[in-house]
Nucleic acid binder design. Structure first.
Lengths: 160, 160
DNA sequence: GCAAATTAATGATTTATTCAAG
DNA sequence: CTTGAATAAATCATTAATTTGC
């Protein structure tokens, strides 16, 4: 039985159609012990009862700007699929800036890699102009969203 | 061999360390035929001799209000990275309003897109100014490209 | 008012990335 | 691991705005 980074306390992996999870408070006790808090579901939003006052609590990790910048920097420097050890290390470092778990790092790299690839593919795909008609301008110039990205090169390596 | 929009009359592309180009008058002869004009370089400024009178000639394209208006309208409607064909069409249309080449259109969209992105990013960046120690972290984490490729499955059994 | 001086915009080049084909 | 395609980011260079001293 494989468990998540958090020791299986709140495995999100493999779940589908579960936009919001009634996260069991702070399982990992990374921050904010918050004794005696209780989670309740309401209108699809996870809410937490703290001292009898309802507080909306985000059910999913959201990187702080510092965390995001660091992750992007790592990606830029070549990290794509960090090993478990690397993930642990990165997570430990990023915890300095806010709540974060190993799986967040893992997923971030997965998603970022996939989305970068999509971006690339999209711009490469624009290479194949669909059979769509060339719409005409603000009068006559095609205002098209899909582009054939061969501009720069084709346009400029023109003479010798 | 691919040729440029300008038919190779004044290749600017691929050249390095060429701050100022002694642009060959109006190669495209779009406007102002200016017969018998000659170009001379002076103080780093391209000047043109017309009827024995020196006239400063602009070394770079400057869009007319109509050209600019049309380009902005196209951008507003979604054009971001026009294909070579689109660029040619746009260029042909805009020539109606003044001298212009395909590369001008190409550069315009590149620059406009990039600077719009910068504008938006700067507005969002008001949110996250700090980034002091974040630098140190990336330095501490080994930047490895696809080393220890573990599957998601393996990664998630890190603990127990 | 008007140029010289200075600053802001922006056109044109160069450099760094990305993914993926070989 | 290397290279090709295609940018996007960064930077350079020139032109337009504007400021300033007279």
């Amino acid at each position: 039985m494989t468990m998540g980074f958090d020791g299986g306390k709140d495995s999100l992996a493999g779940r589908r159609l579960r936009p919001l999870m009634p996260r069991p408070s702070n399982h990992g006790c990374d921050f904010l012990p918050r004794l005696g808090a209780a989670i309740v579901e309401q209108n699809g939003k996870a809410r937490e009862l703290v001292n009898s006052q309802q507080v909306v609590v985000s059910s999913r990790w959201n990187p702080t700007p510092e965390q995001l910048q660091t992750l992007e920097e790592l990606y830029r420097r070549g990290t794509r699929t960090p090993s478990a050890d690397q993930i642990q290390q990165i997570t430990a470092e990023l915890r300095r800036f806010g709540k974060i778990e190993g799986k967040n790092v893992f997923y971030w790299f997965q998603n970022h890699k996939a989305r970068e690839r999509l971006k690339r593919r999209r711009q490469m795909d624009q290479h194949s102009p669909e059979k769509g008609e060339q719409q005409q301008i603000t009068g006559q110039i095609p205002e098209i969203r899909n582009r054939n990205p061969k501009s720069a090169h084709d346009l400029f390596r023109i003479h010798d």
